[in-house]
Design a protein around this nucleic acid. Structure first.
Length: 520
RNA sequence: GGCGCGGUAGCUCAGGGGUAGAGCAGCGGGAUCAUAAUCCGUUGGUCGGGGGUUCAAAUCCCUCCCGCGCUACCA
């Protein structure tokens, strides 16, 4: 039975417009999914949209359309985004789908059966203007002595019948679970946050509403719809066929990983495992919370109007370039800044100059000097063996880094080899050997081709289109590009005629500059 | 307020008791296969301030200053 891996993005709220943050999350998942597939895992990669709630109902009403029509339209934006960024997701779930609704209701019944749901009153200070409840402590006194929300909106005491989940019963089980699974949450700092949050005590959770109806009906009490968390989180197991626990659920759930933005970590690391435990199901294997991107040092916001449209970004810099930048620039989990100078520095300094040019100088040489026929190597020197060994063994640290979602660390390791490869070429100087020792030149050129083959194979998850273009130029068969093909057993065959090479990573030239500026 | 994380070269950051490191930027040089790319060398830091422990502190302890995160129902 093959090793399996299940990776999910959050479901994106249909009221949102897709922006770079959504693209970032999905790209990270995609890189992981591709890496695992190439590493021999049977992977299921899920994305989707969250389509219920009062806001969606209201937006539809405002536009004079049915909620489902609004959802159909906006869900497509996210499905399209996945295509635009090259996501290899195997499935795309919508919370309005029958399979999802069935899963929510099944989970609800399980929770009810195990005695973790009860009916009571949800009461609190509600600000109609903000559509939000506030804590007593958050309120301020207005000039006439009335209570005001932090936003200045007047609040009123509201009581509403609601189902509650006995979250308070899970403080100890959760702490025990965290203790036993220190890798449940990444990065570590988030683990500590969640841990101390739970340690501070848990209150029961209101999980239904009666004030709107655009949601999953509570089984047996149609007045209620489920309120966000049970609805939204259940998508992860709905897509595995839950409540059927035999097929995909059995195969994938034990190896589930959720990638989320840091804003929704509590729901994934506290509520979700609690729900699952309450239903006698296992929590996911790991949740990783990533950070936010600023733009030229400024927060992305609607009011500033500087939210980046992924389409425009990809148009401008190229898809693989964006994917590479997002994975390379910062440790996953940290916040980052998206700036023209940073991205052009990465594109030109690393992709074009160091990696792309490495391939081009080797393949171009073979094309010009040897009529595109890949030479057969002679005996290897210690230098040859050293660089080839580094290439073949690169997968080891890369795997370790990727298993911890350390994209930047993996790329660090890869780039150490890219740099060593350029040093190797300079030291061997095949252009000089051309006159003095053609046989040795052939060996060096062959080694260069092997270096590029290894690097391209391992770079596929990050820059799939470009890496595969390189492999095309090396004449590597489509079914010989997995990590199992690294190493000498699958080395290129001398004597093969290679297609005409052309640069794979073009330099980025800022608008207004006619000549490519030096590495900016 | 409480809890936690961080303040190291111009920039981004690694290191975490024994004579300060990387990448980028800067400066100098070499090479010419290549997308004028690459390669070699190199300038640059009182490791936030103060105090303490120690033969020895960027590293441990105390304290102060500054920045950030979390402190429940907002996807």
């Amino acid at each position: 039975m093959p090793k399996t891996f299940y990776i999910t993005t959050p479901i994106y709220y249909v009221n949102d417009k897709p922006h770079i943050g959504h693209a970032y999350t999905t790209i990270a998942c995609d890189v992981l999914a591709r890496f695992k597939r190439l590493d021999g895992f049977q992977v299921k990669f899920l994305s989707g949209t969250d389509e219920h709630g009062q806001k969606v109902a209201k937006a539809a009403r405002d536009q004079g359309i049915e909620p489902i029509d609004l959802c159909d339209r906006n869900s497509k934006n996210f499905r399209d985004l996945a295509g635009v960024i090259g996501a290899s997701n195997d499935d795309f779930i919508r919370t309005t789908e029958p399979r999802h609704i069935a899963a929510c209701q099944a989970l609800w019944k399980d929770l009810e059966k195990s005695g973790h749901i009860y009916l009571a009153k949800y009461a609190g200070w509600y600000a109609v203007r903000d559509e939000a409840f506030y804590d007593e402590g958050e309120l301020t006194k207005g000039p006439s002595g009335d209570k005001l929300a932090p936003s200045g909106a007047p609040v009123e005491w509201v009581e509403e019948e609601s189902y509650f989940f006995k979250l308070s019963a899970f403080q100890e089980p959760l702490l025990k679970f965290y203790d036993a699974n220190p890798d449940f949450i990444g990065p570590k700092s988030r683990f500590n946050e969640v841990y101390s949050f739970v340690k501070g005590g848990l209150r029961d959770l209101s999980i239904s509403r009666t004030t709107f109806s655009w949601g999953v009906a509570v089984p047996g009490n149609e007045k209620h719809v489920m309120y966000v968390w049970i609805d939204a989180l259940t998508n992860y197991i709905a897509a595995l066929g839950y409540p059927d626990k035999t097929k995909d659920y059995a195969a994938y759930w034990p190896h589930a990983m959720h990638v989320v933005g840091k804003d929704i970590i509590r729901f994934h690391c506290v509520y979700w495992p609690a729900f699952l435990m309450a239903a006698n199901l296992a929590p996911p294997k790991r949740v990783f919370a990533h950070g936010w991107w600023t733009v030229e040092g400024q927060k992305m916001s609607k009011s500033l109007g500087n939210a980046i449209d992924p389409n425009a970004l990809i148009e401008k810099y190229g898809l693989d370039q964006i994917r590479y930048f997002l994975m390379r620039e910062i440790p996953f989990g940290n916040d980052g800044d998206f700036s023209e100078s940073a991205i052009s520095g990465r594109i030109n300094g690393e992709l074009a100059n160091e990696f792309g040019n490495l391939a081009q100088r080797g393949l171009g040489f073979i094309a010009k000097t040897l009529g595109s026929v890949l030479p057969a190597p002679g005996a290897y020197t210690p230098e040859d063996n050293e660089i080839l060994k580094a290439c073949a063994e690169l997968i080891v640290p890369a795997r370790v880094a990727m298993d911890a979602q350390g994209f930047d660390k993996a790329l660090d390791a890869i780039w150490a080899v890219v740099r060593a490869a350029n040093q190797y070429v300079d030291k061997q100087a095949p252009w000089a050997l051309k006159k003095t020792d053609p046989a040795r030149m052939n060996t060096v050129l062959y080694v260069m081709a092997e270096i590029v083959r290894h690097l391209a194979i391992i770079m596929q998850p990050f820059v799939p289109t470009s890496a595969n273009k390189m492999l095309d130029q090396l004449g590597v068969a489509a079914d010989a590009r997995s990590f199992a093909h690294l190493g000498r057993n699958h080395a290129l065959k001398g004597g093969t005629t290679l297609p005409a090479p052309s640069p794979v990573f073009p330099r980025y030239v800022p608008p207004g500059e006619s000549k490519p500026g030096k590495s900016t």
